[in-house]
């Protein structure tokens, strides 16, 4: 009996925590949609290329950060190994893109 009430207490605490988390995720989603809109509007406005390209790339990086940390839970505990895997991948990705683009340019 006492066991059950304890579990119920834990469950109701967990439920509130999950609701809170869900709220953060909806906010994340709204921000991602807003970032997407801004990126499309900046391109549609035909501003100068030197501003637009770094700006939309920055928006993409922030959006991907939201995906990884909020939607894919990388901000939670116990994601240390996983972070090293994905950052390893991102590092190789960055080097590959850099190599290819510079080889073609020079």
């Amino acid at each position: 009996m006492t066991d059950n009430t304890n579990i119920n207490k834990i469950n109701s605490y967990e439920n509130t925590r999950r609701k809170e988390e869900m709220k953060h995720q909806v906010i994340t989603f709204v921000l991602m949609i807003a970032f997407t809109l801004i990126a499309f509007l900046v391109v549609a406005a035909e501003l100068s290329r030197t501003f637009v390209i770094p700006f939309i790339l920055l928006l993409a990086v922030v959006q991907v950060g939201f995906q990884f940390y909020y939607f894919m839970h990388m901000k939670d505990k116990g994601h240390e190994i996983i972070s090293s895997l994905i950052f390893g991948g991102i590092w190789i990705a960055a080097v590959t893109v850099l190599t290819f683009t510079t080889i073609i340019w020079w």
Partner: peptide, 13 residues
């Protein structure tokens, strides 16, 4: 997914 990142990196590059 770490491997997928590398795969897509080469396509993007």
């Amino acid at each position: 997914l770490g491997g997928e990142t590398v795969l897509f990196a080469s396509f993007f590059a």
